[in-house]
Design a binder for these strands. Structure first.
Length: 445
RNA sequence: GCGACCGUAGCUCAGCUGGUUAGAGCGCCGGUUUGUGGUACCGGAGGUCGGGGGUUCGAACCCCCUCGGUCGCCCCA
């Protein structure tokens, strides 16, 4: 406890940033670890990307006039006067690298990454200014099988995270460029005819982004969205065939999906497949994983036309769904001694069992050698550790290590693992006294 | 950018219609007690009541501004 009264003001954290700790941090780590494992199964190559780029990387790919560019990016000038932007997404930076680093030679290229992203938005449940995503992209593959590959991987990821229940895959196609333009024109005609009866927001959307009227939350719009023109009536034969191959592939892989004809993307470069894995357990932010095919993006960055498809998912949202259902991070053994003169022996024992023999069988151990020696047993018990290894004195030898149950919930076998680890450092004698396994630490090796 | 609610010890909160030195539980530190045992008792550290201004004899409590939090709208790459 600090008894000082500092005169300086502690700076506050930046709005919309989070200090993730405790169960939230464990769930977060579980999401990342599971993603890493699954992406390797699907042979996606890991990439590490810069956290900031020239502003043009994002403004060109997203479209100069969109809200997201004009008011939702963290942009600043560096000392040379160049406009830079903290990445608001992974896709544009990866697309830039594909063009500037010669990654075309690896096409079709499957890549995966994760890390922090930044968007200047008002924080709310599941939305932060610095947040984190996992991301997977397939670049240079025009075939619908790439979409399938990505979706099957996403489906497996959600299942392995144990959060697939209550999450549904909503799938749609936006068709090719011609299909999409025809549909868009039809939607504008349809909604313009009833413009006066739409919500103010949707009247505005009619000019800016008519597709978005379809997923309006305003009840005044619902009567009209139900009967709005459907993309299916405007799909070219090629677009229909593409979508059929995507759905056929999902069925073959056993991935459940729901057709969502109103599911659209906010940006113009999307083509064909659009999808979201959605839950109703996260308030207003129901999308846990979303993506689609963005065949128009590379050209927006000055590259050759290159088909690509990808998805991203918010780690915080996935972690919220995981809740406390992550693998145990409990302390298996807490090492302590109530005798100050044996503290170094306790340090030695703790390091031995943490190193393990072999190392895969190392023990998850905490070490308690601070504070009042007499209260260490109480603290050990209160720590929630399953078992304790108490270091006690005995004449003529270094001391003894006694294994005792504290809060045993699991039959996790630690005794043999501890014994093997101790034998790497000590000459020991094993005894058994009053339900407690006890090793006499005779001498150091 | 807009709206609603909220802001008292490290944490969870109490504090009556504004009224003397702002409280509890938990946690933390120390002591005594106990000595197969997370006990019991005693003591201690820790609060500019988010910040600023105003009304009042008097403000944690009323008013204004501001900062922050939560949730929603817009937007959603």
């Amino acid at each position: 406890m600090s008894t000082q009264t500092p005169s300086i003001q502690t700076p506050q954290a930046i709005r919309g940033t989070q200090d993730i700790f405790g169960p939230d941090a464990e769930a977060f780590a579980f999401v990342v670890e599971t993603f890493e494992r699954v992406r390797k199964l699907y042979r996606f190559r890991r990439v590490e990307m810069p956290v900031f780029e020239k502003t043009a990387v994002f403004s060109r790919s997203l479209g100069e006039t969109t809200d997201v560019v004009s008011k939702e990016m963290y942009s600043f000038e560096d000392r040379g006067g160049e406009s830079l932007t903290l990445r608001p997404e992974f896709t544009a930076g990866i697309a830039r690298a594909y063009l500037t680093d010669g990654w075309q030679q690896y096409a079709p290229l499957k890549v995966a990454t994760h890390g922090p992203l930044f968007r200047y938005e008002r924080p709310q449940k599941g939305r932060y200014r610095q947040f984190h995503q996992i991301d997977a992209e397939v670049i240079g593959a025009a075939e619908p099988q790439a979409d399938v590959e990505l979706l099957v991987m996403a489906d497996q990821l959600l299942k392995e995270l144990g959060i697939a229940d209550g999450v549904t895959l909503q799938l749609n196609t936006l068709g090719d460029g011609a299909s999409r333009d025809a549909w868009r024109a039809a939607l504008i005609d349809y909604f313009r005819a009833v413009k006066g009866e739409l919500s103010e927001d949707s009247q505005d959307r009619l000019e800016r982004n008519p597709l978005r009227i379809l997923d309006s939350k305003d009840p005044r719009d619902k009567p009209f969205t139900a009967d709005a023109p459907k993309i299916d009536d405007f799909l070219s034969a090629e677009a229909q065939d593409f979508f059929a191959k995507v759905t056929g592939g999902l069925d073959a892989a056993g991935v459940e999906w729901t057709r969502a004809p109103a599911l659209v993307r906010g940006l113009d470069y999307y083509r064909h497949t659009a999808f979201e894995f959605v839950t109703d357990r996260l308030g207003a932010q129901g999308t846990v994983l979303g993506g689609g095919r963005y065949d128009g993006l590379m050209e927006a960055l000055g590259g050759a036309a290159t088909p690509a498809v990808g998805w991203a998912a918010g780690i915080e949202r996935l972690a919220m769904l995981v809740g406390d259902q992550y693998p145990s991070t409990d302390t298996e053994v807490v090492v302590f001694t109530e005798l100050t003169e044996l503290e170094n022996l306790a340090i030695s024992v703790a390091s031995a069992i943490r190193a393990g023999s072999p190392s895969e069988l190392a023990v998850h151990a905490d070490l308690l050698i601070s504070g009042s020696p007499k209260k260490r047993y109480q603290k050990a018990k209160a720590s929630g550790a399953w078992r304790a290894l108490s270091i006690e004195g005995l004449g003529g030898v270094l001391g003894i290590a006694r294994l005792r149950d504290l809060n045993v919930e699991s039959a996790s076998p630690v005794r043999s693992r501890i014994k093997a680890a101790l034998e790497t450092r000590f000459n020991i004698q094993e005894t058994e006294v009053a339900n407690a396994h006890t090793w006499v630490l005779v001498s150091k090796k």
